[in-house]
Design a protein around this nucleic acid. Structure first.
Length: 666
DNA sequence: CAGTGAGCGAGCTTCCGCTTGACTT
């Protein structure tokens, strides 16, 4: 009997069916040991020696694995082939006290891949393990040294880290770009032509028309000019299908198509994976197994026709440094169409998307007849572009938006009939705020975070109140997020630099290749970091960041009020704190209406925890009067209660039993 | 359709990455 250990329980089930009796397959559920949660856990003086502990939830798993390992003749460690997977294998060998563990790897769960892997066992690659240890220790040092700095200088409970702080930086930076943006005016000139029954437009090629005056000069110059076709260029253009999904592209596409947040997409994908419908959903690889390629070919040829298959196996390559431990995300059985599996609605939508993307990636290109026409009038050049779909190819399965524009038959040297010139004014647009999709895309492009962390990290920094979604579901920084970011940018620029992770990855590669010792990498980072940190503890004054004097006086004790910054934003606080605990919210929007319940307070605009606006008494909690709709300063003629303004612009009585209604007078 | 909120300043806080149930109300 041989024991095989993998990371995921679903994977272990599949593997067991391939291997049959003679093998016991078990899973370790990811990492089994880690640095302790309540202390740094790195002995800096003693060559950065890490202290590893086994969390309670791993203890039971380890106990069971140990039992199996003792019964087995050999233990085979089949964790993922990447830095983290290698480390898990090493931790397992340590904790299970394995004398001669066999290490095997495979990138796809197919019978042939597994048989091949079993024939080629190797030893644990300690260089790769060390690169993971360096990664872990660096992240720990940054996080557990910088966070306490923020507690001391800003507010308790705050956090900083190699990944989260860079994401917040991106959002804050984008917000500043938008705020500082000055729109530039520019003009375009289109010419509308007539050819027999058809009308078509051509655009003046000149780009830098800045003002109406300049546009007018051009149209004036064109007055009475002859519009002659200078060039007609006809050709076939092609569009290739997109590569199959990785975690990042799946999260982006499912946000674009269904507005699913990344976290939701992942929970649905997890279910599809557990039911065996899709391959593993946390991957940065676009590799496809040979078996899946043949099945796709067969499916496409029988369901559509021979000409819809690409004609060869399309193989995709990952850009940058994918760690390639898994396949791309694809249907496990390509001939299982979305229609024939029974799933609930969301699972159905996501499976449909994954299935289509995969099938399409093995299909033929889409073909277009495109025409480009150049028209000359005096010294001015206009261009018209037409595009007609000739063969849909992969678009049959994976529809995408593209512009179709038909041009009439136009010949060279032909003189065209102008209907009119259309000058239009435009303004340059500021960059747009990040959505979940564009933020994840940026993270992936810069190697920040991993497939298993994209979704959780976005949840964390929102929960921590560093960034939030606006009504359009785009990310904006909060006050506290902006303050922390500005502090880090000024005093710890390296940590919030987008290049920091890239540089770290280069160092980790050196360790993995055996060219560098992990302790040296940690030392090189730590020394200047620690020196800077000590200086900043002296230099930065908390008061400058969190306190601002005001002219206002405390209504309770008469001391002066200050504006304070806390975890949840700014607020007025009494300077005599903790003797006087008076507080007041910063932007108190009073409506000038007395509270009808207590007759003491005033109605103010407030927000619920979910940011929904409501109107309540400012004497809360002494008075709990509250309304959803905005009250107007007028009493109901029938029952004397407050009148409210509904969203449908109608005046109603706030008393539910009262039927009084009237229309709004402007 | 029903439903709405009270503390944030001090004290036990925090990282990133691998994996899913196991916790409680």
């Amino acid at each position: 009997m041989k024991l095989v250990v993998v990371e995921s329980p679903t994977k272990s089930k599949t593997l067991q069916t391939f291997l049959g009796p003679g093998y016991t397959v078990r899973s370790c559920f990811g990492h089994i040991r880690d640095l302790p949660k309540d202390e740094l856990g790195v002995d800096i003086e003693n060559k950065f020696k890490p202290k590893y502990v086994i969390p309670l939830k791993s203890k039971k798993i380890i106990w069971n694995l140990k039992n199996e390992a003792q019964k087995a003749k050999t233990t085979i460690l089949a964790t993922d082939e990447d830095r983290e997977g290698e480390a898990i294998a090493w931790h397992l060998s340590q904790v299970l006290d394995l004398k001669e563990p066999q290490r095997i790897v495979f990138h796809e769960i197919t019978k042939s891949a597994i048989e091949q892997a079993l024939k080629n066992p190797r030893q644990i690659d300690m260089n790769l393990v060390d690169s993971q240890q360096a990664r872990r220790i660096l992240d720990r040092i940054v996080g557990y040294k910088l966070s306490p700095f923020l507690w001391k200088k800003v507010a308790r409970g705050l956090s900083a880290g190699r990944v989260q702080s860079v994401i917040v930086m991106l959002v804050v930076k984008r917000e500043k770009e938008i705020k500082d943006f000055k729109p530039q005016e520019y003009w375009t000139i289109e010419a509308l032509f007539k050819k027999q029954e058809n009308e078509f437009k051509a655009l003046l090629v000149k780009k830098d028309i800045k003002t109406k005056k300049e546009a007018d000069e051009i149209t004036k110059d064109l007055d009475g000019a002859e519009y002659k076709v200078d060039k007609v260029d006809k050709k076939e253009t092609k569009k290739n299908p997109l590569p199959p999904f990785t975690t990042s592209t799946l999260q982006q596409e499912s946000w674009k198509r269904f507005r699913f947040p990344a976290k939701f997409t992942m929970s649905i994908a997890q279910k599809l994976y557990e039911k065996g419908h899709i391959t593993y959903h946390r991957t940065d690889s676009v590799n496809l197994s040979n078996l899946s390629l043949s099945l796709a070919k067969k499916f496409i040829e029988t369901s559509y026709s021979k000409e819809y298959w690409a004609g060869f196996f399309r193989k995709y390559k990952s850009k940058g440094k994918a760690q390639e431990a898994h396949e791309a995300i694809r249907p496990t059985f390509p001939n299982r169409t979305p229609e024939e599996i029974k799933l609930d609605k969301n699972q159905q939508q996501l499976y449909d998307l994954i299935w289509r993307r995969f099938i399409a990636c093995q299909m033929a290109q889409a073909l277009f007849d495109s025409t480009s026409v150049e028209i000359k009038a005096k010294k001015h050049i206009f261009r018209a572009f037409g595009q007609i779909l000739k063969f849909d190819g992969f678009l049959k399965v994976y529809p995408m938006r593209f512009e179709e524009n038909e041009l009439p038959e136009i010949n060279e040297n032909e003189v065209l009939e102008l209907i009119k010139l259309i000058p239009s004014q435009h303004f340059t647009q500021p960059p747009s705020r990040y959505s979940e999709a564009s933020l994840i895309k940026t993270m992936e492009q810069n190697g920040i975070g991993r497939p298993s962390t994209y979704a959780p990290i976005l949840s964390t920094i929102q929960q921590r109140n560093y960034i939030e979604k606006n009504e359009q579901k785009k990310f904006c920084p909060t006050e506290i997020g902006t303050v922390i970011n500005n502090l880090l940018v000024e005093h710890f620029p390296k940590i919030v630099d987008i290049e920091f992770t890239a540089e770290m990855e280069e160092d980790l590669d050196e360790i993995a290749q055996g060219k560098e010792k992990w302790v040296n990498i940690c030392k090189d980072f730590y020394k200047p970091f620690e020196k800077n940190l000590q200086e900043k503890y002296e230099e930065v004054d908390k008061k400058d960041i969190t306190e601002k004097p005001t002219e206002k006086k405390c209504p309770k004790c008469g001391a002066s009020l200050i504006i304070r910054l806390g975890r949840f934003g700014k607020f007025y606080a009494c300077s005599a704190f903790p003797k006087c605990k008076y507080t007041e919210s910063l932007e108190k929007k009073t409506l000038g209406i007395k509270c009808p319940k207590c007759n003491k307070g005033e109605i103010t605009e407030k927000r619920t925890r979910t940011k929904k606006i409501f109107y309540g008494c400012d004497q809360f909690p002494e008075c709990d009067f509250a309304l959803w709709d905005k009250p107007i300063n007028e009493k109901c003629p029938e029952c004397d209660a407050l009148l409210i303004e509904t969203k449908k612009k109608q005046i109603k009585c706030s008393n539910k039993d009262c039927q009084f209604r009237k229309n709004m007078v402007e």
